[in-house]
Design a protein around this nucleic acid. Sequence first.
RNA 1: ACGCCCGUAGCUCAGCCGGAUAGAGCAACAGCCUUCUAAGCUGUGGGUCAGGCGUUCGAAUCGCCUCGGGCGUGCCA
Length: 541
Amino acid sequence: MQNEERIRGIIQKAAAKAGLEVGVQAIEVENTRDPKFGDYSTNLAMKNAKKLGKKPIDLANSIIGAIDDPLVEKVECAGPGFINLTLKKESLASVVKKILEQGSAYGKGNDKHFKINVEFVSANPTGDLHLGHTRGAALGDAISNIYEKAGYEVTREYYVNDCGNQVHHLGLSLLARYKELFGEPLELGDDDYHGVDLIEIAKKIKEEKGDSLLHEKTEDVLPYFIRYGIDTELAKIKKDLGDFRVRYDVFSYESDIRKGDAIPKLLEELKPHTYVLDGAVYLKTSDYLDDKDRPIVKSDGNFTYFLPDICYHYDKMARGFDLLVDVLGADHHGYINRMKSALMMRGYKPESLEVELVQIVKTFQNGVEVKMSKRTGKAITHRELVAEVGVDAVRYFFVERAASSHLDFDYDLAKSQSKDNPVYYAQYAYARTCSLLGLGRDIAIDPEGKGLGSEDEKAILKHLADYPSMIEGAAKGRAPHRVAAYIQKLAALVHAYYGLTRIIDRENPNLTGSRLALMKACGLVLKDALGLLGVEAPEKM
RNA sequence: ACGCCCGUAGCUCAGCCGGAUAGAGCAACAGCCUUCUAAGCUGUGGGUCAGGCGUUCGAAUCGCCUCGGGCGUGCCA
């Protein structure tokens, strides 16, 4: 059991003796930030004094008087009524043995028997991924990893919009590029894709088909160009994501959703919630959470994107997930209540869908903002960034900050500072632990950590003991940046310890064995935490 | 106009289910390589937590208002 949990139990027992009955989870135990306040502290007395008509300090003292536990070294009342506990050295050191025994299973949460579908990126296959997608990919994958670590069952999914208006324009743009190769003037509209990557695809078509498609009617060859464009773009996206160490369990295709009679059946099902206005069919989402109704069938008879999207989300729910998580760009926030409303129409709870909004990445180059647009093709692409800066640094960078924070990303700075990226600091800490273990491989490791007990060793032990609850919190908050913050702190503790302590001391093999065990534990946790963020942990740097 | 996100050190950001002197990295400054990797360590400086009012024993954190920035409010996706 981790320290905070144990302390909650101790406090609860003592509080009961002092006349205060509280649930274990209602007891807030926090790591102190200053050793003079002991190892852990709780504000329980301050929170509950009024209820009992006592002064916080008096209540604290009567709780303290009732504490009797072999793990506890010292208890004190401080400030306005904090109860500060100091644990015995041995109880802090016990985490080392646990980590060494459990290895990468350390920090793994209990099986929650809770199935979560995480959908992320889901970029339209109409061009290269841009930096917004990079952030979505890094976050979606890390969130999935953290969920799994915390004991949830996760399916990672990508929804491919291979129908509708956008891919129609992809086909038209590709056709225009194809014709351009034969000397015809390039005609691209505002809604078409101007990205130069289409030229390469057009060249391939030219190689395969020559000029055979040149003089056909547009409507006859357009489906071919659409299909070819989608297949090629999607293959590129899959490769880019794979190179970024992002793996998916399921790719779902809008074209599959539209097959058969699923959509007409859905329309029939939703009929009580619809009305016709100006020839278009509207869904009464405003009866639920939305502030206005949304069209699902256009007056020309085509579906809006929303209808197959509803069908898709119903499909996901029908597959038995307890929770759907959509990682979306912040410009989709209007979509949340729309889709929740649709889910409610079938009787699902609105909480069965959680949307993780990823704020816009503003990109700067030479101090000037680079507007991202797949259509103009001017944006810095995901591929360029990763090639320039490297997977580890990019993944870490995009996950280091909360998804909700607006991110100013300076491309030139990222390139020039890639050596200063905090990820190297963490990787270096790991490499150092490996190096020490290599140098001291002839010394017997002491998993009990008997010699440990200095202030910096205690700080490390406490931080290691925090790992499981950090995982739990990061999962609940879908907050990979907390893992990054944890890693930074652990790396800093290791570096500082290394800098101030001669770890391998051949005059003192017992103490060295304890220290090496501590370093091994740190290495295991660092590697595991970095892995959650999709970052590698090299043994040498 | 309305809705959502954001405003914390020179810069990029943590902290936000209220708690003890507000943190980290980068940048700046001063030190540390004959001993375990200097991609490192030690130390210093740097803040009206956008502003105001309120709730509270206690507010960066909760509520209301104002200001500033971003996004959204398509028969686009």
